[in-house]
Amino acid sequence: MFTVDTLRSLLEPFGQLRSQSPSEWTGQSDLPAPIADFYQQVGPLGHTYYENVGPVGCTLTVGGNPVCIPPLSKLAALQAGYAWSETPAQPLDDWNPNWLVIAEQGGDPFIYDKTTGHVLFAFHGAGSWKPTFFTKNLTTAIGALATVATSYCCLDEDQFFDEALLDSGLQCITDDLANVVGGLAEAQRMLDAWEYEQ
């Protein structure tokens, strides 16, 4: 559905891309092969605004809070507040150890499930983690998010009112997503799982 070249062309406007070796992963568990392949072949690195911070990853403009995909060197640190508290040695009880946050939107995580390969989405601050099924695999998830961002950035001014997305704009985004994920029903299901209404 989404090839490496397609993912690269979709992500390129939202941050620099560079192949990243699995050796840049700093987590304590093994890096799942699909994630290692994604960083090696697609490589969301992002821009460096401050040398002491380093690259910030790809920031997808989707309306409201952006979706942030970190560089591989910062992926392990992204788990803080989800999988563990102050250090990985202090795991949080309500977080499934098979979950790995791969992107976030205003603190709401997109989660890779190591047991199934599925990507889930959850809202933070709900008292407990109850993620919903977003997509069947990592490449579809990233491709869908980047497609929504691309579509959003191409909307006309008359598809907004006071920065809020009008129905016509939402329909354009839904149609663009439908073209790449197998139809309108699947696109709508994914947007509903994400609760995308911007």
Rank of each mutant, 00 (worst) to 15 (best):
S73Y: 02
G81W: 07
C68W: 01
A80S: 13
S73L: 13
G57S: 11
Y39F: 10
T48I: 13
C58Y: 01
Y82R: 07
V62W: 01
V53E: 15
L60A: 00
F38C: 12
L72F: 04
L75A: 08
D37W: 11
G63T: 08
G43N: 13
G81K: 07
P44R: 06
L60T: 00
I69G: 00
E51C: 01
Y39L: 07
G64H: 02
Q41N: 15
Q79C: 11
Y50G: 00
N65P: 00
H47N: 10
G54H: 00
H47L: 09
V42N: 04
V42C: 07
H47G: 03
A36E: 15
V67F: 02
P70N: 12
N52A: 09
A80R: 15
V56L: 13
N65E: 11
G54L: 01
G54N: 01
G63M: 04
G54F: 00
A36K: 15
L45S: 06
T48Q: 12
G43R: 14
A76Y: 02
G63C: 06
A36Q: 15
L75P: 11
A76E: 04
V62R: 02
C58Q: 03
L72N: 04
D37F: 11
L78F: 09
Y49W: 13
Y49M: 04
L72C: 06
K74D: 11
P71D: 08
L60I: 01
G46T: 02
C58N: 14
Q40W: 13
L75W: 07
C58A: 15
E51F: 04
F38W: 12
P71V: 07
G64T: 02
Y82W: 14
C68Q: 12
I69W: 00
S73R: 12
L72I: 03
L78H: 10
C68M: 12
V56A: 10
A36W: 15
N52F: 11
G43W: 12
Q79F: 09
